[in-house]
């Protein structure tokens, strides 16, 4: 339904306010304005009388209207009681959860954790250090034959006629290497692996047996 915004017959603006003049909700300035108008307008006074009578009749009608059943109150209050208990449970569990979260967060900084954390970190650091020390590196892959296994050093003088190929073949055959020389008298200091005295002597014997290439062999005293 669309109500017009204006009245279809000449009605005083104050006349349109009469229902609210009657129910006492007009602002003070509006009420004074209506009072003033009523004192000089018989039509609006008659309209006010009609409204007053209608007001009484309507009150009687509304007062006599049927009341809701008792089921209604039970239904509403029962529903609210149910929701109140659920809400209470939820509001109780809400702070509980927040408290738990707070305690967990604080426990991260609790002193009882600190020593354990420090020890754990130290152990981890030590383990990392040991691991890095024992881990083979590129430098370790460069062998220095003078280190590690026991060796014997011999002072060897080759024949003047010995070729480089003969000398290289002999050194490689005995798994030795030239570590110094030649000296002023043409000697080379050679190093061979030898676990004990017998092994060292064996190296000496082999070298001396190669007379085509080796002139003299003498152990180097350390």
């Amino acid at each position: 339904m669309v109500e017009p915004d204006t009245l279809d017959q000449p009605i005083h603006p104050e006349g349109a306010l009469l229902p609210w003049y009657l129910n006492g909700t007009l602002r003070e300035d509006e009420r004074r304005q209506v009072d003033q108008h009523l004192s000089s307008c018989a039509a609006c006074r008659a309209e006010l009388d009609e409204l007053a009578q209608l007001n009484v009749q309507l009150h009687e009608v509304y007062a006599a209207q049927s009341e809701p059943s008792s089921r209604l109150q039970r239904a509403v209050l029962g529903q609210v009681a149910l929701e109140a208990s659920t809400k209470g449970a939820k509001s109780a569990s809400g702070p509980q959860r927040l408290k738990g979260l707070d305690e967990w967060f604080r426990s991260l900084f609790a002193p009882r954790w600190a020593p354990a954390l420090v020890v754990t970190l130290l152990v981890a650091q030590l383990g990392l250090l040991l691991w890095s020390m024992t881990r083979p590196t590129l430098l370790d892959q460069v062998t220095t034959r003078g280190l590690g296994a026991p060796t014997v050093r011999l002072r060897v003088v080759f024949q003047e006629t010995a070729s480089e190929r003969q000398i290289r073949s002999l050194v490689q055959g005995l798994r030795g290497r030239i570590v110094d020389g030649p000296t002023s008298d043409g000697a080379y200091i050679m190093e061979f692996p030898a676990g004990d005295q017998a092994a060292a002597q064996k190296k000496v014997d082999v070298l001396r047996s190669q007379r085509e290439s080796v002139r003299t062999v003498e152990p180097v005293t350390q």
């Binding site: 306010l17 229902p19 609210w20 129910n23 006492g24 909700t25 309507l58 509304y62």
Partner: peptide, 14 residues
């Protein structure tokens, strides 16, 4: 509207 004016006594703004 009759109920709201005469019984519930609401203002026209309400």
């Amino acid at each position: 509207v009759l109920r709201l004016v005469f019984y519930e006594e609401l203002s026209y703004e309400e």
